[in-house]
């Protein structure tokens, strides 16, 4: 009866806000965990820690080269079955996206460390600087500058990837689009709005990213 085609209501706006919040929350949390894990994996690999380095690399190769949707199913259905534990869709989403992000971050970390001129590291060692100081004061700031463009495009990509989590029932922005469409039968209004929301978020990341990039790369500018 009257429940179909009632048009948009203020309720849809609150749904949109809620979905946006969930998408952002999962994106931010999985990015933070992913950066932490990815940097750790990258460093373990860079310093050639035996065995663990190799093992982590095999895992991250799998995460980089298989569909995120498949990983999501493996986590959401596989982990509870294997370990007999309960898992909410949000938990599964955060675990999956964190691991996936970490795999890409690890590669970025390694390649941007390798891009640093090795001779200055030798110079630093010749002055008796410790490996910790070299990592903190020389390797880290320079590899961050090198990695920045890659990190920005990874972040934009991972933001879009969050839309996949709607499949396992997370009420994210995409799922909200789905819900509102089903109620209003207005896909040509709903989906452009949802799409534009992702677009604006991605643009914000790009703008902030390019500012940071400029800031960290200031030293490369010759007069």
């Amino acid at each position: 009866m009257g429940y179909v085609d009632e048009g948009f209501s203020i309720y849809d706006l609150s749904l949109w806000v809620e979905g946006l919040g969930v998408s952002l929350w999962i994106f931010v949390v999985s990015s933070i965990i992913g950066i932490f894990l990815g940097v750790s994996i990258g460093l373990i690999r860079y310093y050639r820690v035996p065995f663990i380095g190799k093992a982590l690399m095999v895992i991250s190769e799998f995460l980089k080269n298989s569909p995120v949707l498949v990983q999501l199913f493996l986590v959401y259905f596989g982990i509870p079955a294997l370990f007999a534990i309960d898992m909410t869709p949000n938990q599964a989403a955060i675990i999956t996206l964190s691991g996936n992000t970490a795999a890409f971050i690890a590669v970025i970390v390694i390649s941007s460390i390798q891009a640093i001129d090795k001779r200055q590291l030798e110079a630093a060692r010749s002055f008796a600087l410790s490996e910790v100081v070299i990592l903190k004061r020389i390797i880290f700031p320079q590899s961050l500058a090198i990695a920045m463009p890659m990190l920005v495009s990874l972040a934009i990509n991972q933001l879009q990837v969050t839309s996949l989590i709607s499949v396992i029932g997370v009420i994210d922005l995409t799922r909200v689009g789905d819900i509102v469409t089903q109620r209003t039968f207005e896909p040509f209004i709903v989906w452009p709005i949802i799409g534009a929301t992702y677009f604006v978020l991605a643009k914000i990341i790009a703008i902030v990213g390019s500012r940071l990039e400029k800031k960290y790369s200031a030293y490369r500018v010759t007069t």
Binding site: R119, Q120, E122, A124, V133, I138, P141, Q142
Partner: peptide
């Protein structure tokens, strides 16, 4: 090849080791 630390100012290049070592 000089091998200065490119991301540090001239002053920081010189003071890095004295401060940290």
């Amino acid at each position: 090849q000089f091998d200065l630390y490119p991301h540090l100012s001239v002053l920081d290049n010189i003071t890095l080791a004295p401060i940290n070592v």
